[in-house]
Nucleic acid binder design. Structure first.
Ligand SMILES: [Mn+2]
Ligand SMILES: [Mn+2]
Ligand SMILES: [Zn+2]
Ligand SMILES: [Zn+2]
Lengths: 139, 139
DNA sequence: AATGCAAATGCAAATCTTTTGCAAATGGAG
DNA sequence: CTCCATTTGCAAAAGATTTGCATTTGCATT
């Protein structure tokens, strides 16, 4: 996946900062916080500023290039959106690895919600635990 | 539901601050942020401090008296846990009203996760939209 | 009713994360 | 090469939440 193509396809200017951010995201299969991303990006582009990272995460998210995840533990995490279209996430609490999940529970309850007169517009379904490599106990 | 009983059942001291916090939560069918709660509580107990509210939300959450919800829009919301046991939430984006949802999608995919070697420990399923009263469009 | 002490509170300062205004820099279209 | 809208860096502001500590208070026990 080419960072330049990704950006141009969304009519975004191709800047070194954006390429660095996308590179960091590409090289990680874990979900990362803005601060995590900044810490990595600054290694590639020593002069980059916090606000540039924050602003670009917003832009990339708005353009659909990123997924945003907000775990119960707090904070906001980002990952590159790999597959087009709707999907959910399975996330390892130890190594942070994120795996896409094809199953979506909404189909199963849309009629139930309609009966109550509720019109869903968004939903979230995330699963946390331990991946095979990180097999552990934990609550 | 009696605030004093709730607290004593969890071996927590019954203080005016805690009773005020629980009263606010009881009188709201919307999910509230810590700041929302503080804004209401201070009407009942003018001297109360932010840190007291934050500390008590943590305590009440740890004791299972509250549910914690973290919408995509950011922030952290709380509500009184009404029903014992596991449940999910349907939340109106306009009025904030929260409705419990009996359905849980985990059963449908536990075997699928097991095949991948993933051990789930927690999950989240939340639905956002507009309730009957607030019927509106919106994305 | 008086006592004692762990638990809880108020307050102020400290942290952390994220946002904003603005001048300077720069990507890319023409 | 020029030009301008977009993007960036910087510094300050804004929030939200947490922490240390002295003081107060709930409540179990005399
Ligand atoms: Mn994704
Ligand atoms: Mn609930
Ligand atoms: Zn893992
Ligand atoms: Zn509503």
């Amino acid at each position: 996946m080419d960072a330049e193509k990704l950006l141009k396809a969304q009519q975004l200017k191709v800047t070194p900062q954006r390429k660095a951010i996308l590179t960091v995201l590409q090289n990680s299969d874990a979900v990362l916080s803005a601060q995590d991303i900044f810490a990595e990006v600054i290694k590639i582009l020593p002069g980059i500023n916090f606000s540039t990272v924050y602003r670009n995460l917003d832009v990339l998210l708005a353009k659909g290039i990123l997924c945003r995840i907000t775990p119960d533990s707090g904070g906001v995490l980002y990952e590159l959106r790999m597959k087009e279209g709707h999907h959910h996430h399975v996330i390892c609490k130890r190594c942070g690895t994120s795996m896409p999940l094809e199953y979506c529970p909404m189909e199963d309850i849309e009629t139930k919600l309609a009966e109550r007169g509720f019109t869903p517009t968004e939903h979230r379904f995330e699963i946390y635990g331990y991946c095979q490599k990180c097999s552990e106990g934990g609550e």
